[in-house]
Simulated assay, not measured.
Amino acid sequence: MALTPDDVVTKQFQHVRFKEGFDPDEVDDFLDEIVVEWRKTIAENEELKAKLAAYESGSAPAAAAPAPAPAPTPAPAPAPVSEGAPPAAASAGIIELAQRLHDEHVAEGQAKRDQLISDAQAQAAAIVSEAETKGREELARLDRERATLEGRITELRQFERDYRQQLRSYIESHLRDLETTANSSGPTPVSAVGL
Rank of each mutant, 00 (worst) to 15 (best):
L31T: 10
L31Y: 11
L31H: 02
L31E: 08
D32R: 10
D32W: 09
E33C: 07
E33S: 12
E33V: 14
E33I: 14
E33T: 10
E33M: 14
I34D: 05
I34H: 06
I34R: 00
I34V: 14
V35Y: 09
V36Q: 12
V36M: 07
V36K: 13
E37F: 04
R39E: 11
R39K: 09
R39G: 04
K40A: 08
K40S: 12
T41Y: 14
T41E: 15
T41R: 15
T41M: 11
T41Q: 15
T41V: 06
I42M: 09
A43F: 07
A43L: 06
A43W: 09
E44M: 11
E44H: 05
E44S: 08
N45H: 08
E46D: 10
E46W: 01
E47A: 07
L48F: 06
K49S: 08
K49Q: 09
K51C: 02
K51V: 07
K51L: 09
L52E: 02
L52R: 03
A53K: 11
A53H: 01
Y55C: 06
Y55N: 06
E56N: 08
S57N: 04
G58A: 01
G58K: 04
G58C: 07
G58S: 05
G58Y: 06
A60T: 04
P61S: 02
P61G: 02
A62H: 08
A63Y: 13
A63H: 11
A63C: 07
A63P: 04
A63M: 12
A64E: 13
A64Q: 15
P66C: 01
P66N: 02
P66F: 01
P66H: 04
A67L: 12
A67E: 13
A67P: 09
A67D: 10
A69I: 11
A69Y: 07
A69R: 06
A69N: 06
A69T: 12
A69F: 03
P70I: 03
P70S: 02
P70M: 01
P74K: 00
